[in-house]
Amino acid sequence: MKRRAFLGASTGLLAACTSGLPHWGGAGHAGTSGAAWFHAARRHVATPFGRIACVERGSGPAALFLHGFPLNGFQWRGAMARLAPYRRCLAPDFLGMGYTEVAHGQDCAPDAQVAMLVALLDALSIERVDVVANDSGGAVAQLLVARHPHRVRTLLLSNCDTEVDCPPPALLPVIELAKQGRFVDDWLGAWHADHALARSSEGIGGMCYADPAHPTDEAIDTYFGPLLSTRRRKANAHAYAIALERNALAGIGPALRRSPVPTRIVWGTADTIFSTASPTFLDNAFGASRGVRLLAGSKLFWPEERPDVIEEEALRLWHASAAASRQGEPR
């Protein structure tokens, strides 16, 4: 399906689907509570990589939400709440992040994350998924598409690594602190202890969020609390960061160009972590790109603040892909 056709496809259907949509628990607005249902819905799925923490909501074809660093699946609470009427929404915590219990001796590099996701899908008897990804989760998503294209129906990417910006220079101080075993305590510990600092210009809020109310108190506790809870979890979080030093996307270009997976890029233009050239690079990198949407003023973790945009773009991508499949066109 050509890009102009994608932009106009399913507009009426999208409006009909979103009319009267229930926006329950964790819609992403400042002050909205979403932690209770999210924690209650979490389960652990046994895999060779460890017990993977995963929150599931909704029914139907599966959608897989891949979070950023140093967050966890809670990042997607608002989007999952909105999209659960249309998909079986799954938000796992990566190895080394959130509430996942990593197996002894297991590394937390992007390659391992891809293999873990495949094992997770197999354990849940899920053959194919629509993938929605952000930040380092976007790098994992690209690897998943390149190595297991038959497992991915569609891909919705937000601000994330690219082959020529992996890791971004802004991440190098974090990697260095992780090598020293200091990142979790020095940064995450300070933010967990002082939520105002976390939301300030010196914290993750000023760096990665546009809304000064983000991250919320419950988000700070949910993201950083588990990583600070034990020495082993701290070590795994540091291993995750250190593994980002190697360009996991090096050489991925030919596989993305060959990929038949319909891919849409939505990018916050106020992001100071990833290159401003990245959305154009990704648009040109994917053989089945469905174009780029730019969000003025939005930063790296905009999907948490603007789940309405994730809802809109995901539904449009999913419906356009389904319509193309019915008509026998390339998706």
Rank of each mutant, 00 (worst) to 15 (best):
F6I: 02
D130H: 01
G225K: 05
N236D: 06
G96C: 06
L300C: 04
H39F: 01
L90P: 03
A15D: 11
D135H: 14
L295W: 08
A63S: 11
L156T: 15
E218L: 02
F301I: 01
G58Y: 14
A63W: 09
L227G: 03
G73H: 08
N72D: 12
R293Q: 02
N72T: 12
W318G: 05
H148L: 10
G98H: 05
P212T: 13
N247M: 00
T272E: 01
P110L: 02
S59A: 09
L7Y: 02
D217I: 03
A46T: 06
R182P: 00
E305I: 12
A103T: 05
Y86G: 04
A178W: 06
L21P: 09
E245V: 12
E176A: 14
L156P: 01
L156F: 15
L155P: 01
V55A: 01
V174T: 15
A243W: 13
P226R: 04
P167S: 10
L157N: 11
C108Q: 04
V129T: 12
S321W: 02
T154N: 11
L172A: 10
A235H: 03
S200N: 04
R182W: 08
A123P: 09
A79F: 00
R147D: 05
R258H: 15
R182E: 06
H150Q: 13
N236Q: 06
G206M: 11
A63R: 11
Q180C: 00
I175C: 04
L171D: 07
A241P: 00
D111C: 04
V261E: 12
L14V: 01
E313K: 03
D161I: 12
R42V: 05
A115C: 05
G68F: 00
P260K: 12
G96Q: 07
Q75I: 05
A46S: 04
V55H: 06
M97Q: 13
P61E: 13
R257S: 13
Y240K: 00
A5C: 03
V55Q: 08
Q327W: 14
P254F: 14
Y86R: 00
P330I: 07
S19M: 12
A115G: 05
L14T: 04
A119K: 08
L156Q: 07
A324I: 00
P70H: 03
R128I: 08
F301W: 14
